[in-house]
């Protein structure tokens, strides 16, 4: 099946199977930042943005992407780079398998115009499991990043 989607600002025609999930399609088309951590939409690793909304791509059928705007972390390099500097500052980097998905949720939160408090941030990112960091350093880094970006 053919799916027309805009991926990271570029119009693409994707050839997909009817039962294929977007995580697999995107990896097949070399968007390798989109990775699979589970298959039950529990971990947040495979997060992408569909029309600016964070979505677990392991449960999003590729055919649904027709006419949609898809963003992977390759599409927001400046934001990801800036966020990585804050992760570096607070020591929030560990394995990084979840980092690209986190960067996209942070970007979505930034674009949503919602107020940034400890509580909204925690709730916005609760879907991103991390087994390495204990979360607090990530939380501090993201808060600083959002604060810096506001200024």
């Amino acid at each position: 099946m053919k799916v027309n989607a805009t991926i990271n600002g570029m119009k693409r025609v994707l050839d997909v199977q009817p039962d294929e999930y977007l995580v697999d399609t995107l990896r097949r088309y070399n968007y390798l930042s989109v990775r699979r951590g589970c298959d039950t939409t529990s971990c947040g690793v495979c997060t992408i943005l569909v029309d600016d909304q964070p979505v677990p791509s392991c449960a999003y059928l590729s055919v649904r992407a027709d006419g949609k705007t898809i963003t992977t972390v390759e599409g927001i390099p400046k934001h990801a780079e800036k966020l990585s500097e804050h992760f570096g500052e607070t020591g929030a980097d560990q394995c990084g398998f979840c980092n690209s998905g986190i960067a996209l949720s942070v970007y979505a939160l930034q674009k949503s115009g919602k107020g940034i408090t400890d509580e909204t941030l925690r709730h916005y990112l609760v879907g991103h499991l991390c087994r390495c960091t204990g979360y607090q350093a990530q939380h501090q880094a993201i808060k600083k990043y959002l604060g810096d970006s506001d200024e």
Binding site: S33, E85, G88, D93
Partner: peptide, 21 residues
């Protein structure tokens, strides 16, 4: 002394790095 990870930026930016990549 405070030293950011040498690989944090590339990983965050989603560059191919892991086994399946």
């Amino acid at each position: 002394v405070k030293t950011p990870s040498i690989d944090g930026k590339g990983i965050m930016m989603g560059r191919p790095a892991f086994t399946d990549d």
